[in-house]
Nucleic acid binder design. Structure first.
Lengths: 259, 259
DNA sequence: ATACATTGTATCGAAATATGATACAATGAA
DNA sequence: TTCATTGTATCATATTTCGATACAATGTAT
């Protein structure tokens, strides 16, 4: 449905959608925004931006630095995450098992769910050496560039898999981030055979990632458990020996039933 | 500003505010909601609820189970948390230090910020034995019922402190949750002297909590670092000896500068 | 299987609400 | 100081939302 169609749709409240656009204007590069920057980023005119920003401020979604007049996301953003995490049966099931895995391995454990062409981290148990961005829930990363995403992809039917690999966006995080779709196809193929996916230097240099898919009750992959270790201390062989068995075990034990 | 005043305010977009009410309708007791339940909880009529829910669905904020027609929060909720956490200078500063502390103590570490009369957990590093709700970012708990909240309160000026203790809401999580405001005043007083706050059985039975405040550049408390341990393995004395020094050290090292 | 209550979906005229142009104020840079 | 930029306030207009109503689908009790 295009924007024009929505204009006609009497069940679509444009004012709400526009207001939500303001919330989405805040990201890594835009931690705080002034009114005119907000207008630019949302494509709304000055007056509309003013009204929506004010509304979000009054309702507590945005904070306002009275000195600079700039807006920033508020706690409410974090509270919303709670509502989501609490409601997600996979998270409920997984959490204790992820903690256990983290205790056993002593390394960073993540869980991510597929959201469109990205994965979204929904659980993170950091350890020393974990980079800041990798400690925060809700981060979105293109699925094709992560072991987690590729582990999930590997469990999809052949045709679907292929289409995703062709069309989904790629990003570049390090000089080594895989940009070649044929190479990604290979990696996914490999993951389909092994039952887990391996990555190196994709998001951060000298980082090794292993991920195993979590399969839903309908047989489709819903998420991935992911372990991230330093290439200074680990080799692929050592990971396969000391991490993969536990990782697979954990992932397999998290199989959500139909409600 | 009351609802009636807002009606007059041309800078307040009611449609946006109403839409946001739907998002807030989801909490611990309401993981998924049907249209009429949503209407009941938000106080909107059937048609309005229909339009707003549909809009939130179209924009990806709510998921819809096509079988049951019930709505649920989506990943977007978690992504918003990322925007917030990323933008918060205290979180940025604190995260690595919290991880270090967790590594050193081997116990659950949290950080919470004051939000009105509640504290909101913005960072959580769980360990074995951590209960599910205590692993999720964004949880809101009445400040008076937590060591974290009381540690923050203790750093406020006398008069302000007193007013909060008189007026802020209390909840009951266990039979032992402190309900007596005089007792709470005592505990806050103690925290003001010691520089940290101690709790027992407040949120969960057999849980001991210690919390130390983080002071902002303006001298006012902005957050608290919190450590939670089992009363089966720990006593107050042992906590004071083996945990408090490190906790205070960590909290003190997180002092955000003015931008 | 049938009737009934409940919940969700679709439509539309009326009117309240958001619109966005504009003017003004405040800030900060030259 | 002047000028450019950003934020704030106001208002007539018509676009949007409103909410009553009718209809469809679901599930429950008889």
């Amino acid at each position: 449905m295009t924007m024009a169609d929505r204009k006609q749709d009497t069940l679509f409240v444009n004012s709400l959608a526009k207001g939500l656009r303001l919330l989405e204007a805040f990201d890594e590069e835009h931690q705080s925004l002034g009114l005119s920057e907000l207008a630019k980023r949302t494509g709304l005119d000055k007056s509309a931006t003013q009204r929506f920003a004010n509304t979000l401020y009054q309702t507590g979604y945005l904070m306002k630095d009275e000195a600079t007049r700039r807006f920033r996301p508020s706690h409410k953003f974090a509270e919303m995450a709670y509502a989501y995490l609490w409601s997600d049966p996979v998270v409920q099931l997984a959490m204790p098992k992820l903690i256990e895995l983290s205790g056993r391995l002593g390394e960073t454990i993540n869980m991510a769910e597929l959201s469109g062409s990205d994965i979204v981290y929904v659980a993170r148990i950091p350890c020393q050496r974990t980079t800041f961005a990798a400690t925060l829930v809700g981060r979105r990363v293109p699925a094709l560039n992560t072991s987690g995403g590729r582990a999930i992809l590997a469990m999809l039917p052949e045709a679907e898999r292929r289409a995703c690999i062709e069309n989904w966006p790629l990003a570049r995080f390090t000089p080594e981030t895989t940009q070649d779709r044929d190479k990604i196809a290979e990696l996914v193929e490999e993951a389909a055979h092994l039952g887990y996916s391996f990555s190196r230097n994709e998001l951060i240099l000298k980082e090794i990632g292993v991920a195993a898919p979590i399969i839903g009750a309908d047989g489709r992959p819903v998420a991935a458990v992911h372990c991230s270790v330093s290439a200074y201390h680990w080799t692929r062989e050592k990971v396969e020996k000391d991490i993969v068995p536990f990782l697979l075990d954990t992932a397999n034990s998290i199989t959500p039933s139909l409600r």
